[in-house]
């Protein structure tokens, strides 16, 4: 059942021209950034070779690339999550799911997985481009895996939040603006916080991504992402149940 709903969600996203447009633009931006970074690295390489313990190609190229991907994900995730539940409500298609023998948990998890699948597609080119470097050089696989894991966890938390905001309203645009406002707010509070032990850091998903970005697998950060995602998924399920209560 979860797979069925996930598959329908994914197909509905791929059925829209706007999704393909975004996909194309994003690939262009990422490829541009990748090539520019690669060129800068190649220019600097003779100088780097003279330093002891100079950053390798993975640290010089992959880390900033994943960092950019994380930022873009924050801006783009709300655009794709906005329709998930808000549009069901606006088009009055929610009764189909409510009157079917599926629980609200199934509905929310199905949509979550469908959206994650789409974001994988969106971000898939990042590791592909970086792994293409293996044709000419060796990569730091530990750093790559830490970044990949971090990006997946980050995407999960963005999608969970976006789904919840989408469950609150009947207007997809409101859902997009709401989710974007929360994500941007958390990020700005994080980078604007004066002290390094400010609680704002602890609340921001992008702050927790930093450790992954530098190749550290910190279980505390992983737990943050899991809790963040689970809390918002549970809230979204609750909101769907409340739909039955309040009509």
């Amino acid at each position: 059942m979860i797979r069925l709903i996930a598959w329908r969600e994914l197909r509905s996203l791929l059925g829209q021209p706007a999704s393909w447009f975004m996909l194309a633009i994003l690939q262009f931006i990422l490829a541009w950034f990748f090539l520019a970074r690669l060129e800068a690295f190649l220019d600097l390489q003779p100088q780097l070779a003279q330093i002891a313990n100079a950053p390798g190609v993975t640290a010089a190229l992959a880390a900033p690339m994943f960092n950019l991907a994380a930022l873009l994900l924050m801006l783009l995730a709300p655009i794709f999550t906005m329709r998930a539940l808000a549009e069901e409500r606006r088009n009055q298609t929610l009764p189909l799911l409510l009157a079917a023998p599926v629980s609200s948990a199934t509905v929310v998890l199905g949509k979550f997985i469908g959206l994650m699948g789409f974001l994988f597609l969106l971000m898939g080119s990042v590791p592909l481009m970086l792994y293409s470097l293996m044709l000419g050089t060796a990569l730091d696989h530990g750093l790559m895996l830490a970044n990949l894991l971090g990006l997946v966890l980050l995407a999960a938390s963005f999608v969970a939040l976006g789904l919840y905001v989408s469950a609150l309203t009947a207007q997809p645009v409101v859902a997009a603006i709401g989710a974007l406002a929360v994500l941007l707010g958390l990020w700005l509070a994080d980078i604007g916080a004066a002290t390094s032990d400010s609680p704002w850091h602890a609340l921001s998903p992008l702050h927790h991504f930093e450790a992954f970005n530098s190749g550290l697998l910190d279980s505390g950060d992983a737990v943050f992402f899991l809790l963040f995602s689970v809390v918002f998924l549970l809230l979204a399920m609750r909101r769907i149940d409340n739909n039955r209560r309040y009509g």
Partner: peptide, 8 residues
């Protein structure tokens, strides 16, 4: 209102 996914 029939619960139809218009894009399907």
């Amino acid at each position: 209102i029939p619960p139809l996914y218009r894009e399907m």
